[in-house]
Amino acid sequence: MKVAFLGKNFRDTYSGGRIHAWMMAHAFAAREHNVHYYTNTKPVFDEELKDYSDSSNFKKIYNKFFLFFPLQKYDLIVIIPHLASKRSYLIDKWLFYPQLIFLKRISGCPVIYVDFESPNWINELVPGSRPEEVYKYSNNILSAVDVILSTTQEGMKYAAQYYTKYNSGLSFKQVYLSINSRIADRFVNSKKEKQVIYFGRFGEKHKNSSVLNDIINALPPYYTLLVIGNPEKLNADIYQALINQAKEKGIELVFKSGISEREKYEHLALSKLLIYSSSFEGYGLPPIEAQYVGTPVLCSDIPVLREVNKEAEFINFDDKEILTVKINSMLNAEYDKNKLKASVSAFAEFNNYVKNIKYLVDSI
C-alpha cells in the first residue's frame, strides 16, 4: 500500500507532536507499506529515528513552501495538522492544506486526520488557553477527511463532539502512541542518582510551571532538580528567585533545553522521580517515557494521564503539604523497574505500536 503523510516540521526544535507523526510514518513503513512524507524541512530528530524502518520504504520529500508537483496517487493519506499563526496565512490557507485537497482528488482514497487535542477539550480544562481561531485553516479541510485518529480514548470522546460539526460522516479511531523505545532500551538498567526531573514549558498556562517553588521546598537537601525547559522563557526575577531558593534549601537546580532523544532518556533513567504538573495533555509523553526506563512518576490528577499511566501516582499540585509528603515518600520507596516498564510497554514499545497500526489500517 502507498501511504502519503503531509505535515509541517521544524529544523531545530523538538516537538512531541512532530515526533508522534514521524514515528507513525515509520510504523507504516515497518509494515512494509511504501511511505512518502511531504514536509517543509528535515526535522532535527530524523537521524535519531531513522532505524525504525527500512529507508527504502520511507521517502521524505521536502519543499519549504509545500509545493509538491506532480502529486502521485495513494491508497491512504495522513494529514498532520498544526495551529495557525500570524505568519501562516499564506502557507496554510493557500499551500499546505490545499495540497491535501489535491491529493484526495487525485487518489480518491481515505484520509486520516491526526487529532492532537481538539479545542473544546483543552478549553474545558484550561478555559481561554486555546482560541478556536488557531484551528481555522485545519477546520477548512475536514470535509475531505474520513477518519479522525486520536491518541487516547479521552481525546476521542472530545474529538467526536467537536469535529462532527464540520463533517457528520467522520469515523473516529484511537491508537496509543509509541515512544522512542529503541533508544530508551539502552538506559533501562541505569543506576538511580539523587535527582528529580521536571518538564517545564514556561509561558504555557496549562503546563503549571509555577509549582517549581513548591517542588524545591518539598525536596530533601542534596538533591539535584533537573528542569527540562528553557530558563530564558522565565521572567528574570522569577528565575533568580528560584536559584536563590534552591541554594538556601541545599538543592542543585539545573536547567536544560533542546536536549536530544538520547539525552532525554539518559536523564529520565538516572532520576529517582519524574514530577509532571501539567493540568492538560493530549497524551503526555514524559510520564510514559519515564516509566519505560523504570522511573516512578508523580503527575496531575487528570483523566488522560490516568488512562495511560496505570502505575503513576496522582496529586493536586495546589496542596503544598500533600506535595511535600508525597515527594518524600516516593523518593524513599522501592519501585520494581520491570513492573513500571511493563505498565506502558504493551502500547508504547515500537513493535507493539506497529501491530496496533495494522489493526487501525484493517479497521479502515
Rank of each mutant, 00 (worst) to 15 (best):
R306G: 03
E204N: 12
A246Y: 08
P220N: 10
E48Q: 15
V111I: 13
I357R: 02
E47N: 15
I197A: 08
G284C: 04
I215K: 07
V293C: 10
G282N: 05
G294D: 00
T39W: 05
P81Q: 10
Y223I: 04
F255M: 07
V188H: 06
K64N: 15
N34W: 05
V175W: 08
K93I: 02
E232I: 14
W94S: 04
Q195H: 04
V211P: 01
L253C: 11
V297R: 01
F199D: 00
L170A: 12
K205I: 14
P127L: 10
K192P: 01
I148G: 03
A21F: 06
M1P: 09
A21H: 08
F68D: 09
L100F: 09
D115S: 15
S138K: 15
Q291I: 06
A27W: 04
S150T: 10
L76G: 06
S190D: 09
R18T: 15
T324D: 07
H206Q: 12
S329W: 02
G108E: 02
N139K: 14
A348M: 01
L298D: 03
K50E: 10
V354D: 04
F10A: 14
I148R: 05
N309P: 03
I80H: 12
K104C: 06
K192L: 01
K42W: 00
A246F: 08
A241R: 15
F314P: 00
E261P: 00
W121K: 13
K249C: 08
M156P: 00
D185Q: 05
H206D: 07
Y97Q: 07
S88E: 08
E48L: 02
I327K: 05
S209D: 13
Y166N: 01
T152S: 09
K341N: 11
H267R: 11
K8Q: 11
L273A: 04
E117C: 13
R11P: 00
S190M: 11
S279A: 13
N180F: 03
E266F: 12
V145Q: 07
Y137N: 11
G7T: 12
K173P: 03
F28T: 10
K320R: 15
Y38R: 07
D115L: 08
K341W: 01
P286L: 10
